[in-house]
Design a binder for these strands. Structure first.
Lengths: 108, 108
DNA sequence: TGCCGGTACTACGTGATACCGAGTACCACT
DNA sequence: AGTGGTACTCGGTATCACGTAGTACCGGCA
């Protein structure tokens, strides 16, 4: 699949929120998860910038824990604001995708 | 619906391509069409920048015609490159939306 | 001991895109 | 003359994903 980066704008952050929401996890694992889900070209640097943004915006709770196989990990979990943001993301996604699909079907 | 601008990145251009592909039309009308389709906050300036970009990238054929109710209109039609780009857009959209929906359904 | 690969995060800069505002201009109606 | 709707252009801004370089911890292998 060729370049999706522009289309991912605004949605990738939501995907990361969803992943964090389903399980407390950390940056490196989130990247691998996204790659496995079909977001093959998403790179670590991208995920880390998103995580730092989430932290800066107060949407996540962060816990640092030693790893055993490398440097310590920063585990992320959603707080109330994060869950709210996630709900908003899905609402926006549903709104947008329904409009686009309607347009695709000959747009009335 | 609150702000969709980030999510529209990469998709709005495809929507404009689809509209042009279904009928030769011009900027002002495209904006109204998008607004009617549910992209309520899309503004004329945005559509015009997309149209200039399409023209610069050689995806459209442009014809200027007098209007009768205002300044002359620039009518846009897809050329072969534009149709190809449109097909690529829909392929990318389908790919992306299927991944996102899978993630939403508990992501396996 | 020294080197490599995998793990894990940070920081800075780039490019693409939608948005915003101001400006220009044509036309009809009052 | 003034207003409102039509129609396009141009310059600047913010945001986001991405690229790259750098730091650092660890195990295994020569």
């Amino acid at each position: 699949m060729d370049d999706l980066t522009e289309m991912l704008k605004g949605t990738l952050e939501g995907c990361v929120l969803e992943i964090i929401g389903s399980e407390e996890t950390y940056g490196y694992a989130i990247t691998r998860r996204l790659n496995g889900l079909g977001f093959a070209d998403v790179i670590e640097g991208t995920v880390y910038t998103i995580l730092l943004r989430l932290e800066r915006n107060g949407l996540v709770q962060v816990t640092k824990r030693p790893s055993g196989v490398g440097p310590p990990r920063k585990f992320y979990a959603l707080n109330d604001a994060g869950r709210e943001e996630l709900a908003k993301f899905w609402a926006k996604w549903q709104y947008l995708s329904s409009r686009i699909d309607r347009l695709k079907e000959g747009g009335r």
